[in-house]
């Protein structure tokens, strides 16, 4: 498989353009990512992706399986590097108080450490950041109670239900008081009813804190319900196909999914996504 990647090194230009806006935005420009495939074949996962996520915005990222949306999230979050193009991630943004942006991640429940109790899982990020023990415990305890897990401090993740584990992940992500939260299909592993409850938790939490969020999801409803913007990606190699502004009033709750305005947005999203999903099926 042959393809060419444009190589350009004008990161500083991109960075200064972003900085002109003065706010703490993160983003990517002309970003591509290549993986070495198993059979000596290269896989172009992302191609020429341009995306800016403004401070305090909730951006949902949606696309067919294998379109590279998780890869994009991981690159923006600093867990992976781009093959070409520029990334303006958390470590590149210096806030007015002179420190880089703090990021946190919300994975599916499997990201929890099975050998740590609930409270130690929550406190993990704080411990790595060398927060003193007493403060770490206090903040973790507060977050556990905030997600409804008071009394489960000493419980190990495997002893919790799927929904409880997800709440634990939520506490773990938010306890570090991050500026940006990266959520990679966080609710993919829970049953649909629990999912509805957790979506409401997420809405409430976000509307209280207004962090910058990038959410990767497979669910159209979830993308619309939570996001200020929904970004649709094409089948592999992933590009941005549509960047939809969601003008639904806040505070939101799950009930709005049955309203007319919501259905119209969902229909429009699906019209855009449908071709891409079909194409991704042909590939595989």
């Amino acid at each position: 498989m042959g393809f060419q990647l444009a190589r350009s090194d004008n990161k500083s230009e991109f960075v200064s353009n972003l900085n002109k806006e003065t706010a703490n935005h993160i983003g990517a420009q002309k970003l591509s990512k290549v993986f070495l495939g198993g059979g000596g074949e290269n896989v172009l996962a992302l191609s020429d992706v341009n995306l800016v996520i403004e401070e305090g915005t909730f951006v949902s990222l949606i696309g067919p399986s294998g379109c590279g949306k998780s890869t994009l999230l991981r690159i923006l979050g600093g867990l992976d590097t781009p093959s070409t193009g520029q990334v303006f991630g958390c470590s590149d943004v210096i806030t007015s108080s002179g420190r880089p942006l703090k990021s946190a991640f919300l994975f599916q429940e499997y990201g929890l450490f099975p050998w740590l109790s609930a409270i130690d899982n929550v406190a993990f990020g704080l411990k790595m950041a060398k927060v003193p023990k007493a403060e770490r415990i206090e903040r973790s305890r507060a977050w556990l109670s905030r997600v409804g897990l008071s009394g489960f401090e000493k419980t190990y993740p495997e002893q919790l239900s799927g929904g409880m584990r997800q709440r634990l992940s939520l506490a773990r992500a938010f306890v570090t008081e991050p500026d940006v939260v990266f959520m990679d299909e966080p609710l993919g592993a829970v049953d649909p009813q629990t999912r509805l409850l957790l979506q409401e938790d997420l809405i409430r939490l976000w509307e209280e804190t207004r962090k910058t969020v990038l959410l990767v999801t497979h669910s159209l409803d979830e993308a619309l319900l939570l996001g200020d913007r929904v970004v649709v990606m094409t089948a592999r190699p992933g590009r941005i196909k549509l960047d939809l502004k969601v003008d639904l009033p806040r505070p939101r709750n799950v009930a709005i999914t049955s309203e007319v305005g919501f259905s119209e947005l969902r229909t429009m999203l699906w019209d855009n996504l449908r071709d891409e999903v079909e194409q991704s099926l042909e590939f595989s």
């Binding site: 867990l79 991640f105 990020g125």
Partner: peptide
């Protein structure tokens, strides 16, 4: 996924070994 999770929460190099790989 646990290694990624460790890195995502700030465990790198020796810390990643000490707090993630060794207990696991």
């Amino acid at each position: 996924r646990l290694i990624e999770s460790g890195k995502a929460f700030g465990a790198h190099k020796f810390k990643l070994f000490r707090h993630v790989i060794l207990p696991g």
